[in-house]
Design a protein around this nucleic acid. Structure first.
Lengths: 341, 341
DNA sequence: ATAATAATTGAAATCGATTGTATTTTTATT
DNA sequence: AATAAAAATACAATCGATTTCAATTATTAT
């Protein structure tokens, strides 16, 4: 295995010092253009490839950004990552990605690994908001920026990129009301999570605006897992009057509900309308197609990464007093499951 | 920002040399146990964190494995990555992941980035098999192991981890025949791709075994995109006799076909059975649920990573004369779309 | 043409861990 | 106790790029 070409080889070939070669390759302004082009020519002639290990050691930066995701199994996650990647590679950074697989233990391990790898910054969508942010302390101490997205942790000096959940739920609920549905059953994830508290706010807002009294019996907190729909439908049927619409905070769960409802001979959307959340691929495949909220994954990824890079450039911008949030607009996608034929 | 603790700090505190500290921390056998424990105690007291940049430079290894994936949007991809991650982190490696988003240009860029990042090895599921493996040359030249999985490129000295496509297609076809379906329309991706040629073999094998003549009109090559199903169904209807079963090499496409068939008043599975491939989430959501082939993502990821790590340990094992393949068993999941009521 | 100033380039230290070889310490043997 | 052998530790070079400060060269003004 032949040895790698270094700046010393280039320097010798060019009759210059390694210092000048280094500066030329980094496009430093004090190097004459003529010298630069000479060096670049030799570099490509010799097939020079910068040794990032040496550069990392000297500059104490890895040019890697860590990303911790619950799971890489949806179009949404894929597009968030794609957005991040676009912005990062533009700026010369790579992504060190790991899945927490919805395990807090794994999230903990991932955070630790990222720290050992000396990533320059961290983007996190948390396993659970209830997990806290204690485990990011090593990052905070070293002033390495940590930015949350989608599932956002609460901590001082942290930034979170989220969708405007209040507005999203408001829009979905309003749509149902406009279609003439009045008794809207709303299924959410854990009450402890901001995301769902916000959505509940949006739901209430739409009701108030349409002069409909809020009824706590029509709101349910659930795990939103694929098998949670049995419980959901059971709970609906226990009510003295069956709801005429179902607004579930997750497409997978909503899709399954449709299946169960159909199997019970309940017609969607005539007997009951269904609205989901996320615009998963599933939503276009259940029968009837699911009305849902689309959120801009790509954009979220881009904004999260941009914010991170900005903090790397200007560390003073990290000094916030509490979790600051950037909310993205989401959009309602109306399909058959919520429109009376 | 206080300075990081180095092995020199530990050495001073322990009254030993940095060399011994380094060896102790790496659990080198020539260091006395007593010395080791002393050093570990001091290291943790001082909050020492190894500087991987320095280690990387000295050892000329990054401890990063690059992974290039078409897109991170399915359970299958997520579980492959999870499998890789499990094995890698066990051995002290991290994953540098990037999506090619089905663009050859992007795959090219990713490969280049991975090379610049000096990953110790590369795991690739290619955008397209027709893309060739020219762009991996820098890796080959430096003897950095590249292993393909799922979508496997053809090249000398390369290993590919695939499923046993012959057997998978054989099993699916046999199942249809056993259910009494006789005219099975088989839709595949490009003829140039091994994967599909193998599946065609399996299809033929099952026919022969059941004394049914092979009919080329019943085989179609397609892009398998979500909107390809119009063509598929059109082609089926052009036949003098309509097929009674449809075996499509992709769940998404198969699911769409079901939708289109239903919209045309053709009943699945009574008029025509449908079998897909991949066991995507979709398959459990179309109506009727889709019979499909499940392949072991987690296992594939684990095996790919294990093979890679083995080559890192023993570089001589890289010397193969051509693409060698490891085939994994897949399983047929029978659901409503292929079982007559 | 010459001094003064600006523009380039070079020398050498540095980042922190690793490792081949030399040296010291410990243990075993007679 | 003295010596040989083995075990443990230290010295010092090294990996390759970056960067401060000093030195040199080029440019401008007088």
């Amino acid at each position: 295995m032949s040895k790698d070409i270094t700046i010393y080889d280039i320097a010798k070939d060019a009759g210059l010092s390694p210092a000048t070669v280094s500066r030329a390759l980094n496009d430093h302004p004090t190097v004459r253009e003529k010298t630069k082009s000479k060096i670049f020519k030799i570099a490509s002639k010799l097939g020079y490839q910068s040794n990032i290990f040496a550069a990392n050691l000297r500059t104490n930066r890895s040019n890697n950004i860590g990303v911790i995701v619950p799971m890489l199994d949806s179009k949404f996650q894929a597009s968030v990552i794609a957005g991040m990647e676009t912005v990062a590679s533009e700026a010369g950074f790579n992504l060190l990605i790991s899945q927490s697989l919805n395990s807090q233990e794994k999230e903990l391990a991932n955070v630790h690994t990222m720290f050992k790898s000396r990533v320059d910054g961290l983007l996190v969508s948390q396993t659970s908001n209830e997990f806290g942010t204690q485990h990011f302390k090593p990052f905070f101490r070293k002033n390495i920026p940590v930015i949350f997205y989608d599932r956002v942790g609460n901590c001082d000096n942290c930034l979170g990129i989220v969708i405007d959940n209040v507005n999203a739920a408001y829009t979905a609920t309003k749509h149902l009301l406009e279609q003439g549905y009045k008794r809207i059953f709303h299924v959410l994830g854990s009450e402890k999570i901001d995301v769902y508290r916000d959505r509940l706010k949006g739901y209430k807002l739409a009701l108030i605006e349409n002069h409909i009294a809020y009824n706590g019996d029509l709101v349910m907190f659930s795990k939103l897992s694929e098998d949670a729909c049995e419980d959901i439908i059971e709970k609906m049927q226990e009510l003295e009057q069956m709801p005429d619409a179902l607004f579930v905070s997750n497409d997978g769960c909503a899709a399954n509900c449709i299946q169960v409802l159909k199997s019970k001979g309940i017609c969607v959307p005539d007997d009951i309308a269904v609205v989901g959340f996320n615009n998963d691929g599933i939503s276009r495949l259940v029968e009837p197609n699911l009305t849902t909220i689309n959120y801009p994954g790509q954009e979220m990824g881009e904004i999260a990464m941009k914010s991170l890079l900005q903090r790397l450039e200007d560390p003073s911008s990290t000094t916030l007093n509490q979790t600051e949030k950037i909310s993205l607009r989401s959009e309602l996608i109306i399909r058959d499951s919520s429109v009376k034929k």
